[in-house]
Design a protein around this nucleic acid. Structure first.
Lengths: 220, 220
DNA sequence: ATGTCCAATAAAATCGATTTTTTTCTAGCT
DNA sequence: AGCTAGAAAAAAATCGATTTTATTGGACAT
């Protein structure tokens, strides 16, 4: 018989590790927009060789979180009011599209995924920001996860990340103060479970627009 | 005085070179769907070191042209009928969206871009496939290039590439035989220049649907 | 003073070699 | 025969060092 030797949480490649860490640093603003990302600096900061770091930076470039300059290295992508608007608008359009398709294909299995994702998010509300943000994204992805288009989901995931970066940059918790965020999610969930696309989409869009307006009011 | 010493066409990084070549090889099917992409093999084939090749493969992974497997290397992405359908559908939706916005913002400068792109495409008709495909993509990107959303353009560009790969795989020229492709483009162009989104979109969509049907009829 | 050229420094990009991991092959066992 | 374990081979992933490219600072000439 073959026993699994209790994999010691390694198993993950240095490239993946670098990607995860750098992504986190940029999303949270610890690496600020426009910052030069020197290979040597990151090498000592992450205690990794140049190769996995360069690979990770290449991946982040495709995610629009990093910009590569000819032979002059990498920087964290700049931010701007226009860029934020663009992300917000496009996100609404693509997620609306994906939500419509998801609701059209409504199944019992997906219903269960949704309920579960929502439950996990509410349970994570008290915990760390990182934990909640993870569950929050999972919930939003679950809402559109039944759309039968992996490519569209990938685009939405990317836009979600670009958007959340602005929320971090505007200061922690911003966008959520003074709102019953739990209620908003509940409305979206219930309309979706009921198969009512128009209602669900309305709630979802106003959820985004409200958060967006908050963030814009904070921006330079 | 400072003379430009007639840059000897280098200036391009090994990574970019690897990216361009590999992308071409995969799009044209010279590297077939599912093919194992061994670093050593590519190293000798492209006469480059491992680092730029790995970086290029990472970028192509984000493009969905390559798939990375844990610590088991890279392969050319698989193809399937469903995947093609997904690409086609999503492309129609996103390009429709982008075309609408482009037409709404119609300007004299953009009009000129369009006419120019169309002219270059028609002039390239007799020349090499590579030359024509370049101009063909440029024309289609120009049609939606006035939409004021770089992110959306990026998505469309990616979908265009994924789509054209299927056209190559179905065999050269497929999708175009027995059609007056020039006329189709002309219809799209003229409706767009006239600011008639509905007409332009109709022509564009049927252009894609027709090509799509051709390709599907060839697929396994 | 201002601008240009050149040397010195710093950083990016790339390569070759080493280390890990996966895959393949073979011998031994039931 | 079929299966498992372990050795050998192959490939991926990573590292350290080298090469190339960009940036900085200073001397010289206008």
């Amino acid at each position: 018989m073959l026993l699994e030797p209790d994999q010691p949480s390694s198993e993950i490649s240095a490239t993946q590790l670098a990607y995860n860490k750098l992504r986190e640093l940029i999303l949270t603003g610890e690496l600020a927009p426009g910052d030069k990302l020197k290979i040597d600096g990151l090498r000592s900061r992450l205690e990794l060789g140049a190769s996995p770091i360069r690979e990770a930076l290449s991946l982040l470039t495709s995610d629009q979180l990093v910009v590569r300059q000819d032979q002059r290295g990498f920087r964290a992508a700049e931010t701007s009011r226009e860029n934020f608007q663009e992300i917000l608008t496009l996100r609404c359009e693509l997620e609306g599209m994906a939500l419509r398709q998801s609701v059209q294909n409504l199944t019992e299995a997906w219903t269960e995924d949704l309920v579960l994702a929502h439950h996990r998010m509410t349970r994570a509300e008290g915990r760390s920001t990182a934990e909640f943000e993870l569950r929050h994204k999972a919930f939003h992805m679950a809402l559109i996860g039944n759309c039968q288009s992996p490519l569209l989901l990938g685009f939405c995931s990317q836009l979600y990340d670009l958007n959340i970066r602005y929320r971090y940059l505007a200061g922690r918790a911003s966008g959520y103060e003074g709102r019953k965020i739990g209620d908003e999610h509940k409305c979206i969930l219930e309309a979706t479970l009921a198969g009512d696309f128009e209602a669900a989409n309305g709630h979802l869009m106003s959820h985004y627009e409200t958060t967006g307006a908050f963030i814009l009011s904070y921006a330079t």
